[in-house]
Amino acid sequence: MAEGKKLFNVELKVINVGLDIFYDALQMQNVKAVDINWRPTPKLEKEIEDILDKLL
């Protein structure tokens, strides 16, 4: 089995994707964190998607 990054007994380094209250909570505890101002990728109309599929 592959090994993931070390998590226990090392410094936590967190990326927050979503609710900023969770990022704020990490900041309050002096946990190293970066926050992503995440937005959903706009969905292509099915018709345009089909045309692009044919073209590309």
Binding site: K5, K6, L7, V10, L12, K13, V14, I15, N16, V17, G18, L19, F22, L26, K32, V34, I36
Partner: peptide, 14 residues
């Protein structure tokens, strides 16, 4: 974000 924190070991997703 991964470029800004290449050694991130946890991602909190909401």
């Amino acid at each position: 974000a991964l470029n800004a924190m290449p050694d991130a070991n946890l991602v909190l997703i909401s």
